[in-house]
Amino acid sequence: MTQLGLWIGLPGALREITDGASAFDRSPDLGVTEFRSLAGGVTTWAPPVRPRRLKLTWDSMQQDDVQHLDRLARRLDQLGPVALVDPLARNLLGGAQAAGLGPSEGKWSVTGTEIILYGGGVTEVTPNVVSVETVPASGHTDLVWRHPYFHGYPVAPGQTYTWWTPGLDAAGAPMLPARVSWYDASTVFLSESAASTSGRPAVVTAPPRAAYVRPYVAFTAKGMWGMGESVLALGDVSAALLAGDRPIGDGTPPYSITRYSHVASEGDGAYRDISLELVEVTP
């Protein structure tokens, strides 16, 4: 059986669970209800918000990792939600955000009126168009990919990430090499990392004290281009992206732990049959 590991914790204190999960259920909770009339007609209803649910089990686990999960479940350090880096997520951006679709609120941020996002509409199916209206004296203006809840996408020092905007590159948008900004747990800016050349993915490593990453692009000229696809992935996936892979956005939402249990052996102090259930926290 394939073993699955993951990172979980409060931003700035993500911990890797060193024992891989023996089972990981990430099936979407569609919440669809079916109604059947006396005449035989069938209608369905789906809720506008469909939170993701995760269920994980481990056959056994190291004591320090169990204690970490126990503190999170009991909310000893913070009452709010936890961050979790899904080991199966191929693109950490949200689904519509990764596709460049839908309303821009909560997905991107700009400085003043230097950049205007057109399109988007009120649904998640309309493409966004980036219009650079002004380039300041610095020589570039930035478009930042936002996390819907945290200050940035939660990271742990030493983790490697790949960031790229193949949609904007294919559209011919003039940009500096792809880049990211790192922040600590207090949201204080730490440093930046960037690709070595334009038109290629940036493969970057989270520096010491890093808790969040904010990916962005820096436009160097005025113009208008389709947003298209973008990818923020854990690990070095640059070769696959350059070969044409475009993984859909899985997202990295905040979660609340709804159930946690384990069995401790009195003799050897080992922990076994660990179970963890989480539900996505939605705005």
Rank of each mutant, 00 (worst) to 15 (best):
D25M: 04
T111A: 15
V203F: 05
Y260F: 15
D184P: 09
A137R: 05
T57H: 01
L84K: 00
E16T: 06
G244A: 12
E114R: 00
R209E: 08
A243W: 00
D184K: 02
L168T: 09
D65H: 12
P47F: 03
V263M: 01
V122C: 03
L234P: 00
Y255T: 03
D169W: 04
R15Y: 06
G199R: 09
G31D: 06
S230C: 09
F150V: 02
G41C: 04
D250A: 13
G100F: 10
T18S: 10
G235H: 10
F150Q: 01
L69M: 14
S275G: 15
F150E: 00
D77F: 06
A221Q: 04
G228I: 06
G31F: 10
V279L: 06
T282P: 05
F24Q: 00
L14R: 13
S256Q: 10
L93T: 03
G267C: 00
P283V: 12
S131K: 08
I8G: 10
P254T: 03
A23F: 12
R53L: 10
D59H: 06
V132G: 00
H262M: 14
L88S: 01
V155I: 15
W182H: 03
G106H: 08
Y271I: 05
L14P: 14
M224A: 10
F219A: 07
T113Y: 02
D184L: 08
T44Q: 05
W163S: 11
R200C: 04
V217I: 04
W225L: 09
G80H: 05
V32C: 07
T187W: 11
K55S: 05
G158E: 09
T57R: 11
S181A: 15
D25T: 13
N91F: 08
G199Y: 15
G172T: 04
P127D: 12
V155E: 02
L232T: 02
G5N: 12
D236E: 07
P208W: 07
I248A: 15
A21M: 14
H68G: 03
V32R: 14
A23Y: 13
T44F: 10
A73E: 14
S193R: 07
V144A: 04
S265Y: 03
P51C: 13
E229F: 11
A170T: 12
D268M: 14
L30C: 05
I115C: 07
A270H: 05
A194I: 15
T141P: 02
P207W: 05
V188K: 09
I257G: 12
P283W: 08
R179E: 15
S27I: 08
W225C: 03
A171Q: 11
S256I: 05
L117H: 04
G12F: 09
A156K: 15
F150H: 06
A39L: 13
P157W: 11
G269R: 02
I17K: 06
S256N: 08
W225F: 14
G119M: 10
L10G: 02
T2Q: 11
T44V: 04
L14Y: 11
T282Q: 13
E124F: 15
E114K: 01
R259N: 10
Y212R: 09
Q3G: 11
H140A: 10
A206I: 12
T111W: 04
A221P: 02
A239Q: 13
Y216E: 00
S186K: 06
G139D: 00
E114I: 00
S138N: 07
I257T: 01
R26C: 01
G5L: 01
V188M: 12
H262C: 03
A98Q: 06
